[in-house]
Amino acid sequence: MRATARVYWRLLAAGFRRQSAYRLAALGGLVANLTFGLLKVAILFATVRAAGGELHGYDTASMSTYVWLSQGLLGSVNLNGRTDLALRVKDGQVAVDFLRPVDLQAATLATEAGMSLFALIPRGLPSVLLGALVVGMRLPSNPVFYLLGTVSLLLGIVISAATVYLVAVAGFWLVETRGLQILYMLASGFLGGLYVPLALFPGWLRAVAAATPFPSIMMDPIDVLSGLGGEAHAAGLVLAQLAWLAGVAAAGQALTRAGRRRLEVQGG
């Protein structure tokens, strides 16, 4: 048991180190994050002001918190649906992964989580800090939100990796998953609250979003970290995230097992 845990811990650390090799890429990502952040601030502040200074619990200060937390998370959660695994399923190299004495899903999630955690250092934290410096934002004073927020953030990262994993293993049946990947990209960004906080959506669209795992990837960690809605609400969101993680992970296990039997490696 301990030996197994150590293997996945090492994979996590390897993912972390792997991402640290691309420093210039991280800087490029940060510049793009900040630019998009400033444009989001402009349009969303204008929306809050047009609504009379308060809109569904957001004023400009808490809207700023939303913008910069979402921009900061962008480097750590996968909202584009692209993965290395999808390519490996497509060209059959995944057969080699199946030969290794580790669980394919757990190993993939550990590596992805490691890469995501590293991205918080050059992309996540600077986005939030620079946003706070340039635009200003409101952060909760109660430490409970930081504690719950950290848990929620980690859960969001793993749920994101586990959901993209589903897109990748769908390749056992579809082979070409690009269409699915683009669908994932559109749905996760829009329903996950990347451009507009979900509270601003009309009721029926919020209900549609709540029926998908996407809000638990980005919107929930932001709501928990910014302390909107109080402690009980935040704890409820974390519990809902746990439920989504269990569901998505179980689906991934089932699909991997079924897909393994479908896998056909061509050529000799």
Binding site: Y22, L24, A25, L27, G28, G29, V31, A32, L34, T35, F36, L39
Partner: peptide
């Protein structure tokens, strides 16, 4: 010049589209 930092230009190409 950027090579790995290619994403930097997204700021004004795709960020530009958004703007």
């Amino acid at each position: 010049f950027l090579l790995d930092g290619a994403e930097m230009t997204n700021a004004f190409v795709y960020g530009g589209r958004y703007a």
